[in-house]
Amino acid sequence: MEKVIEISNLTKVFDNGRGIRDINLDIYRGDIFGFLGPNGAGKTTAMKIMTGLSKPDSGDVKILGYSVLNQFEKAIEKVGCIIETAESYPYLTAYENLKQFSRYYDNVDDKRIEEVLELTGMLKFKNEKPRKFSLGMKQRLGISAAILSRPEIIILDEPLNGLDVEGMLDIRNIIIKLAEVEKTTFFISSHLIHDVELTCNRIGVLYDGKIVNVDTTKNILNNYASLENYFVSEVERNGRV
């Protein structure tokens, strides 16, 4: 199985003592990897380093064999992501925002922009500016931006944040479809445990900056009644009251 993301000895510690320490993780092609952990565990920190928004104290991340630190353009070329919040330029329309992002990729034309807006239910708002959007609409636009270039890897930090039930179902279906049909690899962090259980095939738990366990969803559900039970037991095992 091809390794698409290799995280080796990744460490970043902030002045307040929080951060990630010695993270080692391999993600394989076609995985829908769920990244779970309590608040402040370091999930977003790890994802920011993976996407070049932050630099680690030590360690490296290789995406498709290219180092994010030394060969950033090649590493990030086939990656789409939403980190923390789905940002867009408030003074450009939804269409103009996607047009801006499309300029960095050879394989994205106007037809593709309309296609992704249609997929996320945003086509009717294409000429409106995000300053007038609700949180859910901004999130859908962010997901459009993440899938725009047909990336091989999609890194999503809380992708269902702010979405209504229909939106959550739509996005879950998009993720599953892209993973099945285009063999897109997903790396998703979420607090919606039930959704992670339904969507992801492998789960990694992060606690206090360290990976405590990585296992397949199938194995976990063989041993525990639900993913929630597994998560609570892992976190309790690591000393949280």
């Binding site: 990030i76 867009s88 408030p90 960095y104 990729y105």
Partner: peptide, 14 residues
């Protein structure tokens, strides 16, 4: 301030 720098920083450009 608007946190829009990260829009371009996660694209294939150094």
């Amino acid at each position: 301030a608007q946190n829009t720098m990260k829009i371009t920083l996660t694209r294939p450009v150094t």
